[in-house]
C-alpha cells in the first residue's frame, strides 16, 4: 500500500491542524478536532509498531511463565502457566496477537501473586524480574506525542 497508512494519517493530521481547526467556531469544536488530530498522530505511530510491541511482550512473558513453572506446585496454576506459555498467535493480526497477549498477562498476574506469597528469596527474585519485565512492557506501550512547539 502506497502511501502507507501512517503517512496518510500524518498528512490528514497536519491538514486538520493547519487548515480545518483554525476555521472552526468555538472552543469545543476546535479542541475536539485538535484532540482527534493528536490521536491520528498517535495512531500513525502505532500502525508501524503495534505488532512488534505485542510480539516483544509475548516473548518476554513466555520466558517468565516458563521460569515460573519451576516455583509453582498448585496443579491448577501450573496448568494455567503451561497453557499460557505455550500459546501462539493464530496469525499476525493485531486481534490474534492481543488474544495471546491477554492470556499471558492474566497468567502473569496469577504467577506474580503466587511468587509474592512464597515469602522467600527465590520468590522475591522472580517477583522482581516480573516487575522489571513489566517496566519494559509498559515503556513499549507509551505512544509518541508530537514535540511541544
Amino acid at each position: 500500500m502506497r502511501p502507507e497508512a501512517d503517512h496518510i494519517l500524518l498528512g490528514a493530521c497536519a491538514e486538520l491542524s493547519a487548515s480545518i481547526a483554525p476555521a472552526l467556531p468555538g472552543d469545543y469544536a476546535t479542541g475536539t478536532l485538535n484532540l482527534i488530530g493528536l490521536m491520528m498522530f498517535m495512531v500513525a505511530g502505532e500502525y508501524d509498531r503495534a505488532a512488534d510491541v505485542r510480539h516483544a511482550d509475548i516473548e518476554a512473558m513466555r520466558v517468565l511463565l516458563r521460569d515460573g513453572l519451576a516455583l509453582v506446585h498448585d496443579p491448577s496454576l501450573r496448568a494455567t502457566l503451561e497453557a499460557a506459555s505455550a500459546a501462539t498467535p493464530a496469525s499476525l493480526r493485531i486481534s490474534a496477537l492481543d488474544a495471546v497477549h491477554d492470556q499471558m498477562a492474566a497468567a502473569i498476574i496469577d504467577l506474580h501473586a503466587a511468587v509474592e506469597a512464597r515469602h522467600d528469596r527465590t520468590g522475591e527474585a522472580l517477583a522482581t524480574r516480573i516487575w522489571s519485565a513489566l517496566v519494559d512492557m509498559s515503556d513499549r506501550h507509551v505512544p509518541s506525542l508530537p514535540s511541544p512547539t
Binding site: 522482581t128 522489571s132 509498559s138 507509551v142 505512544p143
Partner: peptide
Amino acid sequence: WFCTAAHNRMLAERLRDLT
C-alpha cells in the same frame, strides 16, 4: 490510551523500585 500507558509505566517503575 495515553494516560493508561503513561501511568502504567510510572507505576511499574515505582513498584519495581519498592520491590
